[in-house]
Amino acid sequence: MTNRWMKWIGFAAMALVAFSFLYPFLWMFVATIKPETEITEVGLLASSYNVDNYKVLLDRIPILRAFFNSLIVSVASTVAVLIFCSLAGYALARLRFPGRGFIHNLILFTMVMPFQLTLIPLYVLMVKFGWVDTYAALILPYTMSAFAILLFRQFFLQMPQDLIDAARIDGLGELSILFRIFWPLSRPILITVGIVHFMGIWNEALWPLIVIRDEMLMTMPQMVALFAVAGQAEGQFGVQLSAAALMTLPVVIVFVFLQRYFIESMATSGLKE
């Protein structure tokens, strides 16, 4: 009996907390289509609804272009990470070569090195390369990740050696073994690395703020952050919220369909860190 009560008390508590997590998002979406004078009201009902805020937003900043930029940068960087980090992970896990242990330690070192240390010198490097205000600055420093290499390495360590030996006898090179034999068996780790890296780049705001000034090259988080702090949206709750809503909507849609993968990926990556 008490157990049953506990169960429903637990359920009620969770429902209350879940409400506090979901309502702000719901409120945000609805607020963007309320008339200007009713936006700040706590409830969802308004005398009428319109899309004026979005019209103003599209008029003020090229936010669709920013969406497109974010997509290019995140996809390019994620594809690069999947390819290059699995190469490195494979080499570290399955190939014996001089300096392997040393490189493994280097990777561990870069993982614990605080980014605050290299932030400014990395910007200087972008200036020297002439990469400021180019996609290169947004993509190239994120074509590899120490963490992804270690995840691939760990996964590849568990593959049976017979697989490799048989493939070599058949005359396959190491690249073929990696991409034609290991990759199809590595779906879980490819998904994990892919989601975690993509989300990281998609949501990154600091680095774009540093290396991009040209509005046409800005990523979405950067553009919305600048829009929210700059005078452009002064006092206009509705327009600022519309920008945030436009940024949130695609993520919510993808999350609803792929939430299991998202949660599992972020959990594995968190626990391994």
Partner: peptide, 23 residues
């Protein structure tokens, strides 16, 4: 459902969350 609800803000951009909380 609860697990997914608590996780939603984790995947949403920090900028979007911050603009929302500013209001």
């Amino acid at each position: 459902f609860f697990r997914a609800s608590f996780f939603l803000p984790v995947v949403v951009s920090g900028v979007a969350v911050t603009v929302l909380w500013k209001q």
